[in-house]
């Protein structure tokens, strides 16, 4: 090893250097611009951030966003866990068609899925008409155009994102540990709670992080299935940029989201190596 810094960087880095520069210019540049906007528009200072403390409506939008994202994460990961569990422990043929189903729903556009939910669960949708037809209900059940609708749409969209990291994590577990646990006298549920579940923790964390972070940016589903009543941050930012021209507010919220996510990753990194999580996420 000679001491020249260039050699230490290595020729591999030189190859990616132009692309790194491109990423910095095209990605970091605009982000810095947004951060700058959040403290300069409409006037220099921290006024936009101070509004977080004083404005009830901003607080409510953030609360709605966090609530919807947290519930979405909870249900997506719970469903995703069961699906991944069934896939890992099923026979190979079942696993293949289950994986195809997950992937097919993964690939269907969010708009198509959103409108499908309206057709299925809307006021005059298949389910309500069927239930009314056989006389179980007299009034249609309000599945859609409210927070429940947003949650249904978002959980459905997010399940594949939960399944894939969990699947990868479960596949690496040595099944002999389960046998060992049983042979030492643990019951089935004891084995699951005390041996299996802790082993899948990196996968659980990865799935939860992925789902939660992606949920934060949801736009189409809340806008359509929420019927205008579920206002989340992404939609609010877009309104502030395009309609009301409060670019400072929009930039402040964008910065808040960005640092929120980074902060979340930082907290997680205190508890576990992030590389294992995202290494585990390679499905």
């Amino acid at each position: 090893m000679n001491g020249s810094p260039l050699a230490r960087i290595g020729s591999g880095w030189l190859l990616v250097l132009p692309f790194l520069a491109l990423v910095v210019a095209l990605f970091l540049g605009p982000i810095v611009d947004i951060l700058r906007l959040s403290v300069t528009d409409p006037e220099p200072g921290l006024g936009n951030y101070a509004a977080l403390m004083t404005s009830d409506s901003l607080a409510r939008i953030l609360w709605t966003t966090l609530r919807v994202c947290a519930i979405t994460t909870l249900f997506s990961v719970a469903f995703g866990y069961s699906i991944a569990y069934a896939m890992v422990h099923g026979v190979r043929r079942d696993r293949n068609w289950m994986l195809s189903l997950v992937l097919v729903s993964f690939w269907i556009s969010v708009l198509v899925r959103t409108f499908s939910w309206l057709m299925l669960l809307g006021r005059k949708g298949l389910v309500n008409e069927a239930l009314a037809g056989i006389g179980i209900i007299s009034q249609p059940i309000e599945f859609m155009r409210n927070e429940l609708g947003v949650l249904i749409g978002m959980v459905h969209y997010m399940i594949p994102y939960a399944v894939l990291p969990l699947l990868a994590s479960m596949q690496t577990i040595d099944t002999r540990l389960v046998s060992a646990s049983r042979s030492l006298g643990a019951t089935g549920s004891q084995t699951f709670w005390r041996v299996y579940l802790p082993l899948t923790r990196p996968g659980l964390v990865a799935a939860s992080l992925l789902v939660f972070i992606l949920s934060l940016g949801f736009y189409v589903t809340p806008a359509i299935l929420g019927g205008g009543k579920v206002l989340m941050v992404a939609e609010y930012i877009s309104v502030q940029i395009l309609v009301t021209l409060r670019w400072g507010t929009a930039a402040m919220l964008a910065a808040l989201m960005l640092f929120g996510v980074l902060g979340l990753l930082f907290v997680m990194s205190r508890f576990m190596k992030l590389s294992t999580i995202f290494g585990g996420a390679r499905a």
């Binding site: 009830d56 409506s57 409510r60 939008i61 709605t64 205008g228 009543k229 579920v230 206002l231 609010y236 309104v239 309609v243 009301t244 409060r246």
Partner: peptide, 9 residues
């Protein structure tokens, strides 16, 4: 617009 959004959401 912002006041309206606040009222309906």
């Amino acid at each position: 617009v912002n006041a309206f959004l606040d009222a309906i959401s």
